[in-house]
Each structure stands twice: as C-alpha cells, then as structure tokens.
Simulated assay, not measured.
Amino acid sequence: MATMRAARLNVTTRTLEVTDVPRPVPGRDEVLVRVMAAGVCLSDVHLIDGSLTPLHLKGDTVTLGHEVSGVVEELGPEVLDVGVGDRVALQAGEHDRHGQVLTRGVDYDGGWAEYALASTDTLVPIPDALPFDEAAIIPDAVSTPWAAVTTTGDVRPAEAVCVWGVGGLGAHAVQLLRLVGAAPIIAADPDAQARARALDYGADVALDSTAEDFLTRIGQLTHGRGLDAAFDFAGVPVVREQAVKVLGEHGRLVLVGLTNRPLEVADGTRFSYLRQQILGHYGSEPEHVVQLVDLVAAGRLEFSRSISDSLSLGQAPEAVRRLRERIGSPVRIVLRP
C-alpha cells in the first residue's frame, strides 16, 4: 500500500503528529491532488489547543489544513472535466448530501499532507502566474474577509470603515476595503507591527485601540458621523463594545472573530434610533474564492507580501508555535510538503 506523510491531530488528546498514513485513492467525482502549499490558520491553532472541536468528524484523528493548493495527480472514476496536471486551489469546505457544511481539515482530512482528496466541485482552477503559496491562502485568509466586506457588510464606495485586529484576516480586509473604495479606512490594533502592516496594506490611519483618545480619534476621522461599517476580526468583547459606540446612522458591526463571550449593547435606545445592525459572519461561499482568483488574474490583487514564511511539512508543529505566539507577527505561514 502506498503511503504519504501527513500532519494528524488527535482531537481527544489534542496531539499533533507528522506521520506516515495510507495514500488515499480517489473515488467517483473525486481527484487526488499533490499538495504544493497549505496555509496555517489561527483556526488550526484553536483546534490543537481545544478551543475549537470538529462537529462532524468521523473518528478522533484528522489531517489539518483547509487552505490548500496543488496539482491534480490522479482522477477518480468518471471524472471527465478535470485533467492530470491541472493547477488548482481547493475550496475550504463543501456540503454533504444533507446540505450540512463540512470544513476541510476539520470535519474531514485536509491539506497538511503530501496528497489530498478533493471532490471535483471543490476545485478552483488557478492561472500559471499565480504562485501556489499565494493561491493556497485565498480560501479563508482572503475569501472570508472578502465575503465579510462585500456580502455581509455590503460596503459601498466612500463609506467610513474600521478594522479591529490586523492579523491574517484583518490585513486582507484592509486591502480589500481599499479595492472596493471604502474611505476612510481606519485600522485598530494594539500591536505596533500590525499597525504598520495595516498602513502597508492600504489603511488611511492605523490607531492603537488601547489609547485613551481612540474613540475620539474615530469621531474626528469620520467628521462626527461615525462608522458606516465596523469589522471585528479580533473576537474580543472590548472591541465589540468600542465598535458599537462609534457606529453611525445605519452602521453595521460585522463579527468575524470568534468568541464565546456575550455581547452587550449599552445604549439600546440609541442603537435602535440610529437603526444600527450587528451581523454575524463565518467563512465564505464558493463564488467568493472564484471572484478573488479572477481578480488576481486581472491584476487587481496580489498576495506575495502575505506569505510571512514557508516551512516544510515536518515543521508543522513549529509553524503552529510561531502563529500561536505571534512570533514575527505573521500574516500567513505556509507549509510546503
């Protein structure tokens, strides 16, 4: 039996091990993809530390990795519209036959491996000019903020916005808000490196969210009108409290960062009078990934600066440690099997 290397998480013991496993064989409507790059996301860290648990995983071990790109290596039976050698990115998840959303690398095996199985309807063709490491991070690291900005937040040109938390997703949110014409774009983060990155990615102003005059500065930057849209990529209660205070009329607070802590609106009368909204957001739809690949192909976007480092598959535990401890304030670390 052919084998391959894979980074496997035991969700019972929360232990991550790079080990040899059987190389999968594609079934009907499936292909085997030779993985060229796989992103390391904060969600992977949360799976390992136990703050996230798979809801639909069969068994107690899973190969991590939901941000994946590679080359089609083998076709399953009756696969006609895909060819061996095709360059592809993989959607971060899919629907099962009951309509339930399943996440790659969470509910079924992902791309921290030499090879990954993929249903044909989760393949996204990528152009030859798009490097594999940049293609890998489009599903989730870029598509999640893209969906938050364009769909959930419905940001329009010249709307005043603020992004709290300029990490892997927040940095791309700044870049994408610039693309859709938001103005001004305010970035908020207590970390100086993150604030510098925000300016590099297109923010007009980057503020320390712990500064005493932080909320006053947002009022000044929006000429007293408040924010049209606020994006919480930090998942921290204090961020949400700050954001609600500086929303303007019809302002939207989009919750992207995950937390199990309660959200409190201190002044419900003001919130209702200004007809504000709080909107939950999670992930993206397949069309968002396709849109982003098309925008890259058209020269509107590029993500080379988002690749903070590339490590081998055997260094997966080290990549997790660097992200968990924010060593070097990475946007995305990529594994290359």
Rank of each mutant, 00 (worst) to 15 (best):
E94C: 08
T61C: 02
L42C: 08
Q100L: 08
V25W: 02
E67K: 04
V45E: 08
E74A: 13
V31G: 03
V72S: 07
D86K: 05
T103Y: 11
L75V: 13
H66G: 11
V88G: 01
N10V: 03
G59E: 09
V68L: 04
L55D: 13
L75G: 12
E30V: 03
T19V: 15
P26W: 06
H95P: 00
L55H: 13
V101I: 11
V72G: 03
A38C: 14
V101H: 12
E94K: 13
I48V: 15
G50N: 13
D20C: 00
A37N: 04
G93S: 05
R23Y: 00
D96M: 00
G70W: 06
G59H: 05
D81W: 00
C41N: 14
P22G: 07
V35L: 04
S43L: 06
R23C: 09
V18G: 06
V72Q: 09
Q100W: 00
E74Y: 03
R87W: 08
G85I: 10
D81G: 00
T13M: 03
V11K: 01
C41R: 01
E30H: 04
G85K: 08
D44K: 02
L52P: 00
V21Y: 05
L90F: 10
D81Q: 11
E78D: 15
P24E: 13
G83E: 15
G76Y: 02
R14I: 06
E30I: 01
G59A: 03
L42E: 14
R34E: 15
Q100G: 01
D86W: 04
G65Q: 12
A37V: 07
V11I: 15
V72W: 09
G93A: 07
V21A: 05
G50S: 11
L47Q: 14
P54N: 09
D96L: 00
P77I: 10
R28I: 13
E74K: 12
V88S: 01
T53K: 14
G70Q: 11
E74M: 10
T12K: 13
L16H: 03
T103V: 14
E78T: 11
D96N: 14
D20W: 02
K58C: 00
V71C: 05
T15F: 05
H98M: 03
S51A: 07
I48L: 14
R23H: 00
L64Q: 15
G70H: 08
E73L: 04
L32N: 10
Q91W: 07
R87I: 14
V71Y: 01
